[in-house]
């Protein structure tokens, strides 16, 4: 994206929700483990609603709650 990266919008990762324990690592945002796909989806939606943030679903099925 070149120059755009240094300009607004500024992205912040607020939470990472995964069903794979190996991917729960300490980071700037909250990394949460969900027991099922349904659980992950619900957790993500709730967090996104609460924080007024957007959700990105990764190809591996994990969710990332980000704020633009």
């Amino acid at each position: 994206m070149g120059r755009e990266q240094s300009m607004k919008p500024d992205y912040k990762v607020l939470a990472y929700v995964t069903t794979n324990k190996d991917r729960v690592i300490a980071s700037a945002g909250v990394a949460l483990f969900a027991t099922s796909e349904k659980d992950a989806n619900e957790m993500t939606v709730d967090i996104a609603k609460g924080l007024k943030a957007d959700v990105v679903q990764l190809t591996n099925g994990d969710y990332m709650v980000i704020r633009v």
């Binding site: 939606v45 957007d54 959700v55 679903q57 990332m64 980000i66």
Partner: peptide
């Protein structure tokens, strides 16, 4: 498609991670 937005076949964003979005 999946959680990504395309316009005229061109990728625009993947911020649509929830069904509602």
């Amino acid at each position: 498609k999946d959680s990504s937005l395309y316009v005229d076949g061109m990728y625009v964003s993947n911020l649509l991670g929830t069904e509602n979005a």
